[in-house]
Amino acid sequence: MKFNLKIALVCFLPYVPLIVLYFLVHLYISNKVIALLVGVGIFSILYNLVHYQYAKPFFKRHPELDPHNLELTTMANIVVGLGFVALVGLTLTGMYWDNPAVILLSFGLYYSVVNGFKSYRGTTK
């Protein structure tokens, strides 16, 4: 049951600018859904530029931090199951799904925790 904080941070970092972009766009667009779509569109363009310029060379030098080179462990499977139960429970009770920033933050934290419990399996060909 080893948690790799570096991998969790690498997986969570893209969610920070996405949430910031949502808040910046939401200042000008009052509709939450439209603001989220515009924020995700701007983020997608910027993410592709940054990914091909910086992330691909970084992951070639450090394949142990690449999320594609990780495999599920027993603890990661337990976290996935608990997260699914929590997601269904929150959806059925209707709690906090009115704010897209909270949704993005919760999915980002969930994704990073699951990947933090994964183990390095070696590079994929």
Rank of each mutant, 00 (worst) to 15 (best):
A8K: 07
V80L: 10
I7K: 00
I7C: 04
N31I: 09
G94E: 01
L72K: 10
L36D: 03
F84Y: 07
Y47D: 01
N115L: 12
V16G: 09
K118Q: 15
A35W: 09
K60S: 14
K2H: 06
L105V: 12
L82F: 10
K2L: 12
I78F: 08
V88E: 03
Y120F: 14
N31L: 06
T93M: 09
K2R: 11
K118C: 11
K60Q: 15
L109P: 02
V80I: 14
G39T: 02
S44H: 00
A101D: 05
A76V: 03
F107N: 12
N48I: 06
G94N: 15
G116C: 09
P57I: 04
V25W: 03
A8G: 04
P17V: 14
Y22W: 11
N48Q: 13
V33P: 03
G94Y: 07
V33H: 07
F117V: 03
K2E: 09
Y111E: 09
E64I: 15
L109T: 13
G94V: 11
G39Y: 00
G89E: 07
V85I: 12
D98A: 12
F59R: 02
N4V: 14
G122A: 11
G83M: 02
L70T: 02
V85M: 07
V80Y: 05
V88I: 15
